[in-house]
Structures are given as structure tokens and as C-alpha cells.
Simulated scan of single mutants.
Amino acid sequence: MTLPSSVRLFEMSPRDGLQNEPGTPVPTRTKIELIERLAKAGMSHIEAASFVSPKWVPQMGDASEVMTGISRHSGVVYSALTPNLKGLENALEAKADEVAVFGAASEAFSQKNINCSVSESLERFEPVLARARGAGLRVRGYVSCVLGCPYEGEIAPTKVAAVAKALYDMGCYEISLGDTIGVGTPLAAKRMIDAVSREVPMECLAAHFHDTYGQALANLYAVLEEGVSVIDASTAGLGGCPYAKGASGNVATEDVLYLLKGLGIETGIDLQAVIDTGYWITAELGRTPSSKVALAIGCRQ
């Protein structure tokens, strides 16, 4: 199939990248500056915060302060994760531009992650979607473990398709398909996308691939060939999953941008600005970027 002429990147580092950061919470001002830098680099969609209980995710305890503290750039959508009605109400108060809910294609992962079955999790989202619609807010849906689960192993593409369809039918405008533990390979990714796109329009699908086994870029190329044109990525490769032991972060935004540039696919994002941002945020966290491209090109600051 023909590759897309342009791709929309959904930047995950302020939320997915920082939510599992160990130790002392990252300062609110640092999170705000990260979001500012990403917007100035050309990001049109940034997941800025997660309105979850600080008891379970301490790094996201300042979600309201982050959302109200950022400067809103024209043309940039600032999103927040809201797993329940309380989270949604807090996101509305903080003026999030859109919100997201998250489910899983794996029963075991769903139990470990949100303490309920897949079907129960979908039922819980119905009032969230209804309230968001009433407030004129778009909702994005996430599906975890689309290419494998740390507890169940391989996940059938039909299971992924069923959960994605349920979220789409419920009103999610876009479904992000997450290889949470990064075990997928290109053929498996193609088969999964093929199954899901039979139930949900291709233009409503996004790829959210982790790079645990070094396969994320290959998997992204595979689904780009199938027609996917939205990619979730995290600057400097920040992030991971607390329920998937050993799982590394999302694919690095820098590496995705380099791939897309080489393919002649437009993004509207300044690669060097993202590299510089990656070096800045990892210095704040006391380490270096995991992006291969960032390490090869280096920081110009």
C-alpha cells in the first residue's frame, strides 16, 4: 500500500513518559517547560497530564497545576488521561482540550492494571464518554497489550479488534493501539491492524509502540504501509509500564521523526528542537536520552 503523505504525531512524554519516573516527583515547573518546548517544536497533540489518584501515580499528582500553568499555543491540542468521572471533572475544570480513557485487550492485564475485567472497564467508561460529550469534549481511547501481554502471552488480533470497536462505538474519535511491552514484530503488527481496521476506520487508528525488543520502528513502518497515519511517541524515549516488568519506554519521538523524514512524510515538527528538548529533560532527570538519533546527532544547546 501507499505510505501516507503526512503523519500526526501524538506526543506522550509529559504523561506516559513521566508517570512512572521513580523517586521524587518531577517539579511542576519542569513539566510545564517540557510541554512548552514540545509545542514550540511543532507538536500539534500533547498528552499533558493524567487525572488519576496520586496515591497510585504520584508523578501525576499535580495534573491540575500543570494543565492550568501551561501557555496554550494556537493549533495545539492539550490532552489528559481520565480513567473515571472524577478524573474527567478535574480535567474539565483544568480546561483540557480533550481527554482519554484506557482499556486492555488482555483480561489479566486489565485486572492487574485497573482491577476489573475488560467488559467491566468498558462499562465504566460509558458515563465518562457521556459526560465528555455533554461538555463538548472529544475522547480518545487506548487499548493496551495489542501485540502481547506479560501475563497471557500472545493476544489474538480479534480480541484487540473487539475492544477497539467497543471504544469506537462508545464515541471515542480515535483508538490508540498499544504494544505495551514491546514484543510485537512487523507481521504481527500488520495482522493486528488488519483485524482492527475491519471494525474501526483506518483513519481513526493510531500506533503506540514500545521499543523493548528494538522492533518499534520496524513495526511502525509495517503499519504505515497498511494506512496508519497517527503515531504516539515520547521524546527521548521516556516512559515504561509499571505492570510490565522490564518494559522500556515508548518509541523515541526523535527516531520516529528521522524515519518519517527519510520516507518523505510530512510532520511539521522540528527534529533538532525535539532532540534539544530530549537532552534537556533527561538532564533534568539525571540521565541521557535513549533515542538513537538524539545520541547520533547530539544537542546544539
Rank of each mutant, 00 (worst) to 15 (best):
E11R: 08
E11K: 09
P14I: 00
P14R: 06
D16C: 06
L18A: 08
L18M: 11
L18C: 11
Q19H: 12
E21C: 14
G23L: 13
P27F: 07
P27N: 06
P27Y: 03
T30A: 15
T30I: 15
T30V: 15
K31M: 02
E33G: 06
L34K: 02
L34D: 04
L34Y: 04
I35F: 02
E36C: 00
R37H: 09
R37S: 02
L38V: 12
A39V: 00
K40Q: 15
K40Y: 03
A41H: 09
H45I: 14
I46M: 09
E47D: 13
E47L: 06
E47T: 05
E47G: 10
E47M: 09
A48L: 00
A49M: 00
S50E: 05
F51W: 06
F51G: 03
F51Y: 14
V52S: 12
V52I: 11
P54E: 03
P54W: 02
K55M: 05
K55L: 10
W56E: 08
P58S: 12
Q59A: 12
G61N: 02
G61E: 07
D62R: 04
D62C: 09
A63P: 05
A63F: 01
A63G: 11
E65Y: 00
E65M: 03
E65L: 13
E65G: 05
V66W: 02
V66N: 03
V66Y: 05
M67W: 01
M67N: 04
G69R: 11
G69Q: 11
I70N: 04
I70L: 15
I70T: 06
I70F: 05
S71F: 04
S71I: 02
R72I: 12
H73A: 14
H73T: 08
G75M: 05
G75Y: 01
V76C: 07
V77I: 14
Y78W: 08
Y78T: 11
Y78C: 11
S79W: 00
S79L: 13
S79I: 02
S79N: 14
A80R: 03
L81W: 01
T82A: 14
P83R: 07
P83F: 10
P83I: 05
N84D: 13
N84H: 02
L85K: 10
L85R: 13
L85P: 05
L88F: 11
E89C: 01
A91P: 01
L92D: 01
L92Y: 00
L92F: 04
L92Q: 05
K95Y: 01
A96W: 12
D97S: 09
E98H: 04
V99Q: 07
V99K: 06
A100S: 15
V101K: 08
F102W: 11
F102A: 15
G103W: 11
G103P: 10
A104G: 04
S110A: 15
Q111E: 15
K112N: 15
I114P: 01
N115C: 10
N115T: 13
N115G: 05
C116S: 14
S117L: 11
V118M: 08
E120P: 10
E120V: 06
E120T: 10
S121G: 15
L122G: 09
L122Y: 04
E123T: 14
R124D: 07
R124L: 13
F125Q: 03
F125R: 03
E126Q: 15
E126S: 13
V128Q: 09
L129Q: 03
